[in-house]
């Protein structure tokens, strides 16, 4: 059995999994809050949808990292890792996305919940709520960039 391959896949799994769980939590929180507003004022759905979706991007970044790993380790392309050491390297490359994605998605979800309150009370200020949520997003992006650069350069 090739432990290197196993460890690399474990990395891909937690990058997709943890970032996805974070996004699911974030989107879930925002959507719960939005549902309350929608029962009273269904016409605000469009504005709220943006806030509901924002914490969802981390899951997508996680997916990208996961796929990039699979493209490199012989599942969707490339060659299987030569040994445990290379497998661990892929694992390490997945960590920023897994950790950064999970926590930033949950925090972003919280910001979006407060954003939903803003939209409920002052719908004209919704763009400010969206910008506040995007402040958190930066850290997911940074984690994504680092993970991405690491995965890309392991084979090189």
């Amino acid at each position: 059995m090739n432990y290197g391959l196993f460890i690399a896949m474990l990395g891909a799994a937690i990058a997709v999994g943890a970032a996805g769980v974070g996004s699911a939590k974030g989107v879930g929180m925002a959507s719960e809050a939005a549902a309350g507003v929608i029962t009273e004022e269904p016409e605000k759905f469009g504005k709220l949808l943006v806030l509901q979706l924002l914490p969802g991007t981390q899951g997508l970044y996680g997916l990208i990292i996961g796929v990039m790993v699979l493209l490199n380790i012989g599942i969707l392309g490339g060659d299987a890792p030569s040994g445990i050491q290379e497998g661990l390297t892929y694992f390490a490359a997945c960590l920023p996305m897994a950790i950064g994605g999970f926590f930033s998605a949950v925090s972003q979800g919280r910001v979006c919940v407060t954003g939903v309150h803003i939209v409920a009370k002052r719908p004209d200020e919704s763009s400010k709520a969206i910008v506040s949520a995007s402040l958190v997003e930066l850290y997911a992006l940074l984690a994504f960039i680092v993970s991405f650069l690491m995965v890309i350069n392991i084979g090189a």
Partner: peptide, 23 residues
């Protein structure tokens, strides 16, 4: 200035997700 790295990150994410769909 570092915040502009999102230009690259989001550009990548569109392309890679589109690739995954095609795969």
């Amino acid at each position: 200035i570092l915040s502009y790295s999102r230009l690259m990150a989001l550009g990548l994410s569109t392309g890679v997700i589109a690739q995954v769909i095609n795969i």
